[in-house]
Design a protein around this nucleic acid. Structure first.
Lengths: 198, 198
DNA sequence: GCGGAGGGATAGAAATTCTCGGTCTAGATG
DNA sequence: CATCTAGACCGAGAATTTCTATCCCTCCGC
């Protein structure tokens, strides 16, 4: 299976420069220097053996090939964005599905997470379970359970409970331990687990 | 204009591994080590906060999200390949359109490039012109003309002519000076320009 | 038990990307 | 005319990413 795939980084530079007809403006949009955009576009043109821009002293013009390529690349970016959003909604807007083991579930308010306005913004639902596989299968976003288990690829945050003999484990997938949702849930847990007497 | 674009390198690793359900086989296909594929896939999963594979001791299984993502990414790669091929046919199969200045055209066989079997494989057509803009506009693939001119982004190969007072310039776009076509044309030129007496 | 297959982890080498400072050109301004 | 501004280009070096090599682990077959 052979694809002919230019470097995405070079395509990103091309697409932004082509929309703006300016390396400078593209650089501003991409958050890099104009020199970097210029280098990437030049690298793309070299790899293709086709010029995509006519350089003018104060800006750019697209060649015929550049004009043909731009809408195609824009479409590719949109398709890729859509596909990515579909399987992995933006972490910042993602509402967590939380798994709570029975022991922890019993320590939390019956209407958890609705008892707290802030928490409710971050949590879609919670179910009573200790099943780690639900994390591996992307069915849950985090799981709070007593220690132990083959976590393998998952990320573990130890929740120390002053009145409990054993720590609890907040388990989630890689890349999600530091987000606002995890922090809000951990803070709420800390509050409830510290208050509940043995 | 904000796109959500995972690194293409990570997507490339994902797509190959997902097709084969094996990092090892994907590595073979991509020409890198299995460790590199593993790293790239892991990087993608981290950035998404979603697991795309279930790792087994002797291979991989796709998660539900992985199974959804694969055909979408494959389609994106195909679209991108098609768009790229459309504006920039593979350099190895590209037939050159050659510009020859009048002085040079007069020194070559009347049926150039058809006088030579090998050359004919590399050259689609030739026109008599000295106009550099045709190179900038991707209308020609190379141009042979007397020295001088604002070549700016173009690549220049100097053709020394023993019996001529001035060198000639073989001019082409970046990335195309070293390919088989350019070399064949330059060799043929060298042959004819050396043989022609003052 | 041993060997092989394949995925994971780590450190360092290699490659790529980015930044910075300077150059050049065209156009505007005084 | 001289000067300034905007923006693209160039090259060197810093920063980051990618890749490699080596070792570890689990599972499976013999």
């Amino acid at each position: 299976m052979t694809y002919r795939l230019p470097s995405l980084n070079t395509l990103r530079a091309f697409e932004a420069a082509a929309r703006h007809l300016s390396f400078k403006t593209a650089a501003d949009e991409l958050g890099v220097t104009a020199g970097a955009v210029s280098q990437q576009v030049k690298k793309l043109e070299n790899s293709l053996g086709v010029l995509l821009f006519r350089r003018l002293p104060n800006g750019l013009l697209l060649t015929s090939e550049g004009e043909t390529y731009l809408p195609a690349i824009t479409q590719v970016f949109e398709d890729l964005t859509h596909a990515t959003e579909q399987i992995a909604p933006d972490i910042n807007s993602r509402k967590f599905r939380v798994g709570l083991c029975p022991a922890v579930r019993g320590l939390l308010p019956a209407n958890w997470p609705h008892h707290n306005e802030n928490l409710r913004r971050h949590v879609r639902e919670c179910i009573e379970t200790s099943d780690i596989d639900l994390l591996f299968d992307n069915e849950l976003d985090c799981l709070i359970r007593p220690g132990g288990g083959p976590y393998r690829d998952l990320t573990l945050v130890v929740v120390t409970c002053p009145q409990r003999a054993h720590d609890l484990h907040f388990v989630c997938r890689p890349g999600t331990a530091e987000c606002a949702q995890s922090r809000a849930i951990l803070a709420d847990l800390a509050q409830h687990l510290a208050c509940c007497g043995k």
